[in-house]
Amino acid sequence: MTYYFSKKLTNISFNQTLEKVATVLKTKGFGILTEIDVQDIMKKKLDRDIKPYKILGACNPSFAYQALQTENKIGTMLPCNVIVQELEDGSVEVASVDPKASMQAVENDALIKIAGEVQQQLQAAINEL
């Protein structure tokens, strides 16, 4: 089982992709809680240049609440990370963690069921891009 799913987009800029990702995630009940600019961090901390790369912390409050009621330490694995990165050919890739794959380590059947529902919504969002 892979730990992520992704989609490569062409003919759209990195910044337009970020906006589109946020919009599509919102239609699936997710909000962006955090945004980490990896390109900026690598430049500031290591003086290294990389292509634009952002990590978005996406959260669906309803699913997060259910997960916390099922497993009180699950916050160590939240929110769901979605990356947006510019590739060498100028296209943009969007990838999301597969929550079902990551939650299998917890060994809680109720949590796996919730993770499956989150997986469906995240995958639908990625496919919609």
Rank of each mutant, 00 (worst) to 15 (best):
N15D: 15
Q69D: 05
E86D: 01
L56Y: 04
V21K: 02
K100H: 03
I74W: 02
G75W: 03
Y3E: 04
M77D: 05
N127I: 03
Q85T: 15
Q104A: 12
T10M: 14
T27E: 08
S102E: 09
Q120N: 11
L33Y: 05
T10Q: 14
M1I: 09
V106R: 06
E117T: 11
D98N: 15
N108C: 12
Y65I: 11
N15M: 14
L9I: 15
I112E: 13
A22V: 00
K45G: 02
I112H: 13
K113M: 04
Q123C: 10
I12N: 07
T27H: 01
D109I: 02
D47M: 08
D98Q: 10
D40H: 06
D47H: 13
M42D: 00
K8M: 11
F30W: 03
T2C: 09
K20W: 12
S6F: 09
Q85L: 14
T27G: 01
L129I: 09
N15K: 13
I41H: 09
A64C: 02
K8R: 11
P61Q: 00
I36F: 04
Q69P: 03
C59W: 13
P99R: 04
V97Y: 05
Y4K: 13
K51F: 09
V21G: 10
T76S: 03
V38D: 06
T10D: 06
V118T: 07
L56H: 08
G116N: 08
C80H: 04
A95P: 07
A115S: 13
N15I: 14
N81E: 06
K44R: 06
A125R: 11
T23R: 14
T34I: 00
Y53L: 11
K8S: 14
A95H: 08
I112M: 15
I126A: 02
I32L: 01
I74Y: 08
P61A: 03
K43Q: 15
Y4H: 13
